[in-house]
Design a protein around this nucleic acid. Structure first.
Lengths: 147, 147
DNA sequence: CCCATATATTTGCCATAGCAACTATTGCCA
DNA sequence: TGGCAATAGTTGCTATGGCAAATATATGGG
């Protein structure tokens, strides 16, 4: 319970780390001819696991808010990587599906992402992973609503 | 050196953590009548430590790029919290200074930020802090240029 | 069944961020 | 010293993200 003092600026460290990670994603995608952004990858990855979901579910899974997901979907539809289909049970809702082209891009991006994950984790081990997740989960829990 | 496998999605955990942290900053500033954003706070905080610096130095210190800093400075100047003064030694350069109003806002924001740091770090200790910094530094180093 | 409320999505507005191009200077070096 | 590469800053363009408001539809209670 120490380090909860004025100099414990963990937010800044997290921020700069996430920035350099995203920068590497962008650069590697470009270098490998994968024409998507990091955040577009997040949605494609989510859809590859669970296809045909409503936008709000996609938003939840990807930790984005509804307007942001709506607009990223617009871009991905424009690129032909996904499609919106009306939900058969709820006329307010659209279900999102990967297209053939989307699956192809996903297949092309996946090894790039795996390479980045390996590269980023070099010199670290399973114990570190447990530490990291435990610490981030604790921070997350501390900041959840109604606290 | 394990966990460098396809499921080691540490980027997503970092991303959602930083999002909830920034959300809490925004909300607390608003609730306490501090009319600045999280990123504006980052610059004010940097200036409080080292006043009268050039924009590129401010960019380096805050891990932002030059255009972003230029525009945040525009907003802070408009709010009267900082001012640009021509550098006496380099006519391309502006030195940035906190104004009296800026120092007042800083003084008002600081206890809010300290509260958030304490809240976020609840349940964690110095050892965790060392773990976190070591892990983030390692990831950062792995992703630095020319690697 | 009807209405009030809740939910799914979209749109507008603004802030942050990155990239590329542009201007104004500076500094170096032949 | 003349010229050219490097540097400081700004601006344009695009993407992401958050908040608030608007629309369309669903749902639950009386």
């Amino acid at each position: 319970m120490q380090k909860n003092n004025p100099t414990n600026n963990f937010g800044a460290y997290l921020d700069r780390t996430i920035k350099i990670i995203k920068h590497n994603y962008t650069r590697s995608f470009k270098k490998n001819g994968v024409d998507i952004t990091t955040e577009q990858w997040v949605l494609l990855d989510s859809l590859n696991t669970k296809n045909g979901v409503a936008q709000n579910e996609l938003a939840n899974d990807s930790f984005k808010n509804a307007p942001t997901v709506s607009r990223i979907i617009d871009l991905l539809v424009k690129k032909g990587l996904i499609e919106r289909k009306p939900s058969p049970t709820d006329r307010r809702s659209h279900l999102i599906y990967l297209t053939k082209k989307g699956r192809n891009i996903y297949a092309k991006a996946l090894p790039v992402v795996e390479g980045l994950r390996r590269k980023g984790w070099e010199g670290l081990n399973d114990e570190d992973y447990d530490h990291l997740l435990r610490i981030l989960d604790t921070i997350l829990g501390n900041f959840k609503e109604n606290k």
